[in-house]
């Protein structure tokens, strides 16, 4: 009997991610998203630099997928929700958690993990041992996105 329960439990555990797939793209409840504590940095966060990183096509490249309140930028992607109002929808800790590794929140996400130094499969040599953004940049972008409250 205990074996049966074990098998059922295992089946439920395996079904979890499958059920999670159905919800891809569906709005998530604010309470369901974990928070991440501020990263250790050498200086206080700079939201203006965060904005520059967000629109920079080589550093944050956020606008490849997201749109947002950046009227000076010609091309905005539509693969992901608008960044407008991000600071209303999420706490700073939740924004930071999404930036650090969004797959921890949704395993099927297309959002790259911005602060994961172990890299991906067949990581390009030029990127070995480096996260997409460093701790200061993560804090800058977090501080900037938290200001988007319209």
């Amino acid at each position: 009997m205990r074996r049966v329960a074990l098998v059922i439990g295992l089946a439920a555990w395996l079904a979890g991610p499958i059920a999670g797939r159905v919800a891809v793209g569906a709005p998530m409840e604010k309470g369901a998203v974990p928070e991440a504590a501020p990263l250790a940095t050498s200086r206080p966060p700079d939201p203006a630099n965060g904005r520059r990183i967000v629109v920079d096509r080589r550093r944050g490249f956020c606008l490849l997928c997201h749109s947002g309140p950046f009227p000076e930028e010609r091309f905005h992607g539509d693969l992901a929700p608008s960044l407008a109002g991000a600071g209303l929808r999420w706490s700073e800790g939740q924004i930071r958690a999404r930036l650090i590794d969004s797959t921890a929140i949704n395993p099927d996400t297309i959002m790259p993990p911005y602060f994961k130094s172990e890299g991906g499969y067949r990581l390009g040599r030029a990127f070995a041992g480096k996260p997409i953004l460093n701790a200061e940049e993560i804090e800058d972008v977090t501080a900037f996105l938290a200001t988007l409250r319209d």
């Binding site: 297309i110 790259p112 890299g119 991906g120 499969y121 067949r122 990581l123 390009g124 990127f127 997409i132």
Partner: peptide, 17 residues
Amino acid sequence: QRFGQLNLACAQCHDAN
């Protein structure tokens, strides 16, 4: 298979998006 620092699979762009 997800690849690289951006951690993306072909299917995520070319099937899903």
